[in-house]
Amino acid sequence: MTGFIAVVLYVVWMQLLTLSYAFPRVPMALFGGRKFSDWERAEVNRDPAFMVRAKGAHLNCVENFPLFAGVVVVAALMGKSPVVDSLAMFILLARVGQSLSHLISTAPAFVLSRATFFLAQVGMIFWICFQLIV
């Protein structure tokens, strides 16, 4: 898998997470007695637990995406795409693993799993950076 394909799949994953918490809001607003404006950031969150976790998983993706996309682009500009390509699939899999852990539960084992997947991504991105500058 190339770094560019991994970036595109990462975006697809973020969009799926967005739909998982945004799409259920439409019928809730249309038929469930919730106003469309109930989802402003300043309001108390009354979403079901899964939707709260899905939004958190999406926001975690958004936090890390610029770093991953940045090293993919920089590697390509430097003519060193193979450095990223060797780890791109593993970074994407770690991201999906982190998101799934977030979606499943907030129990300590899943929080630890989530942190492990996150640290794996951070470590791989650091490794790519190191490989690009040496």
Rank of each mutant, 00 (worst) to 15 (best):
I133F: 15
F36S: 11
N45E: 11
V83D: 00
V74S: 08
I91Y: 00
S105H: 02
L59E: 10
L67V: 13
V8I: 15
G3M: 03
F130M: 14
V72G: 00
S101L: 12
A94C: 07
S113M: 11
G33F: 06
P27E: 08
L17V: 02
A75C: 07
C61L: 08
F126P: 04
M78K: 10
P66G: 06
F68C: 02
K35F: 10
M1E: 09
M78H: 05
P27Q: 09
T116I: 15
Q98F: 05
F4Q: 11
F118D: 03
T18C: 09
F130P: 04
L19H: 08
F36T: 13
F118Y: 15
R46K: 15
A42Q: 11
R114F: 04
S20C: 06
F126T: 12
M28A: 15
W39K: 01
R53K: 14
E63T: 06
I5E: 10
H58D: 03
R53W: 01
M28R: 13
S113Y: 06
M78E: 08
A6G: 03
S105L: 04
V72Y: 00
L9E: 06
A57R: 01
F117E: 01
Q98S: 06
G79V: 07
G32E: 02
N45R: 14
W127Q: 09
A29L: 06
Y21M: 05
V62G: 05
W127V: 09
M89V: 11
A120L: 14
G33N: 10
T18P: 01
K55I: 06
A29W: 05
V52T: 12
